[in-house]
Design a protein around this nucleic acid. Structure first.
Lengths: 102, 102
DNA sequence: GTGTTAGTACGTCGTTCATCGTACTAGGCT
DNA sequence: AGCCTAGTACGATGAACGACGTACTAACAC
């Protein structure tokens, strides 16, 4: 089984996380994950970019520690790392999600 | 008297604000402002960059709506737009400040 | 096996951005 | 007037980034 690297909770960096959340396409992914669409493959997200660009954004989110990903067959299962983010940067994710929903 | 442009509260954009807060030098400025150092000229901030780069960062913060600036003689007086940011993006500034202080 | 599907690797292109130095302006002080 | 100080304008440079297409791999279904 293929594996994917994730940073540990105490390795999360504010710079990286803010950079990850700073892109509108990535916020769109995070929003869809937050709204419960976390049982679908990357390709099923509605994004205005190509497949390879989509891969790029998912990887940025993962290496920043915003989401975690694991393989399910050929597809990838992504989830928001809510608890980890809240532990390290309390309130940040919720504030961004809140702001993004307007 | 020279004047400086500021976006209205309802014109603040999440993208721009996140981009502004995403830079470590600018977060340092914001932190110093939040900690009460808001009665000093731009040049008095302790920043690891040149004077012209410093001007650049202050302008990014102002045009994003994170700070407001007005002339006091030749110097510029900068303040955090706490209330405006809280009105438009509740909790965001505090979450970032909190995270930046670790 | 073949074919299909989901995602990756890689190289490229164009844009944006942080940084700088130099030359300049506006306001205050003597 | 002359000088100093705080900040700006402008142009240059190099790095980072978002976007793309093409060619590839891994897992599943048949």
């Amino acid at each position: 089984m293929r594996t994917l690297d994730h940073p540990a909770t105490d390795e999360l960096e504010l710079d990286t996380v803010l950079a990850a959340l700073g892109d509108p396409v990535r916020r769109r992914i995070v929003l869809q994950l937050a709204d419960g669409h976390d049982e679908q493959a990357c390709i099923a997200f509605e994004l205005p970019v190509s497949k390879s660009t989509s891969t790029h954004h998912f990887r940025v989110l993962r290496t920043a520690g915003v989401i975690s990903q694991c393989y399910r067959g050929t597809a990838i299962h992504s989830t928001l790392r809510r608890d980890d983010l809240d532990e390290r940067f309390p309130g940040l994710l919720d504030a961004v999600l809140d702001a993004a929903r307007r």
